[in-house]
Design a protein around this nucleic acid. Sequence first.
DNA 1: TTCGTGTATGGAACCCATCCCATAAAATGA
DNA 2: TCATTTTATGGGATGGGTTCCATACACGAA
Lengths: 326, 326
Amino acid sequence: MTTIQDVARKAHVGVATVSRVLNESGYVKAETRERILDAIRELNYTPNAVARNLYHRKTGIVALIVPEISHPYFAEFIDAAEAVLYGCGYQCMICNTKREQNYEAYYLDLLKQQRVDGIITGVHTLDIEQYRQIDRPIVALDRQLGSHIPCVAVNHEEGGRMAAEALIRSGCRKVLQVTGQSHVSTPSNRRHEVFEQVIRESGGECINYLSKWNRFSYSYHREAALEIAENYPDIDGFFSTDVITAAVLHAMKEKGRRCPEDFSAVAYDGTFVSRLPYPELTTIVQPISELAETCVDLLMKQIRGDVLSETNIRLNVIYRQGATTA
Amino acid sequence: MTTIQDVARKAHVGVATVSRVLNESGYVKAETRERILDAIRELNYTPNAVARNLYHRKTGIVALIVPEISHPYFAEFIDAAEAVLYGCGYQCMICNTKREQNYEAYYLDLLKQQRVDGIITGVHTLDIEQYRQIDRPIVALDRQLGSHIPCVAVNHEEGGRMAAEALIRSGCRKVLQVTGQSHVSTPSNRRHEVFEQVIRESGGECINYLSKWNRFSYSYHREAALEIAENYPDIDGFFSTDVITAAVLHAMKEKGRRCPEDFSAVAYDGTFVSRLPYPELTTIVQPISELAETCVDLLMKQIRGDVLSETNIRLNVIYRQGATTA
DNA sequence: TTCGTGTATGGAACCCATCCCATAAAATGA
DNA sequence: TCATTTTATGGGATGGGTTCCATACACGAA
């Protein structure tokens, strides 16, 4: 690989002058500049980014930690975050934890090693304590990792309420919602509490189906859906994520239970998956792009060293009427 | 940040000795090692990865260039590739081109800047010439970028044939397939040629619907689907990707055309999306994990400096019977 | 006793940039 | 003409590691 030394030698100048040309800083005589640019062209020289990173003590890379890249919610989040980060001059490293906590610890280390300038994490298997030790830019998506780490999420209470009300409007009396493992309290778990409460208050019955699989790949969702259709064919209302709801609609149809004739359903997330099933899903839309923008914004502020005025941000969800509710 | 110097000072040794302990190489007296390890613990020292990268002239990062992260095919590919790369000790940087060719050029530069050790690209908007200039590890997914860059794809001819035959078996006489912009010849375009040929040979009519949008986001697919349902409600067979097929099934149903009663459909890719619609899609499955494994394998060989025996790899597709064909 | 050989350690070059600072010439002003 | 200021340039320290090589001691063999 050609280095700045090679360029300097070829142009008969010192490396400092070449550097000045490269960074367009300081004084360089027009004539000298041309000679250096020629040398750069001839040698097909490109500055080594790692050496620059070393000097500047930053890499221009942000890590996105997610439990599963191909889950539509995270895929759309990554898509959006990547676009915003690109606009800020940052590259984006993806880290798939697949629910293994050693992965998460490994990825957190990227920060200590100065391999990345910041982390946006949508994962929370580790102890909060392990995050507390790190005093570097981190933003959590939908995860409460302690007071010093900003958390960006939607207003899940509102989401849970909207979902419950949609089912109540559809006349549901016996509804089932799929809840996640809640050994760690996440903002997103709040929606299930509110959902249940609102359903109960309406006099309806609310079954909480605890997803055994704390996993995000579709095969698990599908199995859960089959189990639900098998064991609870008589529910008249259903609430879960887009993907699981789509899977349940499918499984129910196999059992001869049609939506919305025999039961209603409200989904959550508002990814493209909610538009795929027929009928289209009524869903509580999370503004994924805005979540990504907000996460990046908070991260950039930390990287710049700004003081964060707000560390607990809640965006609004949007109710999108499909055809799975009245 | 604490450096190896700080550790050396604290342990009263030279930096070389600390380095030896860190890398478990060379001779270090047990007693000295303990003293150094203590110092590392006390200072909470982590070696700076950028400095290491500079010396070793490698970063342990591979870039994945895709046109759209959240498209299920690419999302599942990234998911799989990330896992394999992790196993090889590599991190994974994602680059979304969104069909803008300046993005692709920008990302290719990451290689020249030595920011990444290799690139796996699923994108091909640039001239082959621009790839030819780069003599560093690159693997192309489903793209022919010139003889020196290995290309990994499935046997699309076989896929096109399987799809056509499935529709013929279902008795289709007037089928429509969605083809992409083919200003650049990609292996994947071959399936449409074979598909058309096989349909024609069976005496059927084959309409090639050229997707105006050379885009991968769902809103475009959906619009295309609505247009197809509007303009070609009388087709009895359909062939496209999972996502577009799902969208067309949806749009057709709105028009009162049911699948498989009124028309048959075969999809392509075999992502989780093929399992979401009801009825489940008959689809030609691309072995996405194997594609990813193969790409990574070829990339690692290049990084190691091995000579590639084969640079044009074709994996087999799998026919998966759903309920959209007989 | 002397000559390896294995063990143990640290100085310094190296990886490839950036940039401070010293130096000097040219341009400007008094 | 002399004193400043501006322009122009390069040496060398710096960022934080790795590793070659020189040095030195201990120990067994000749």
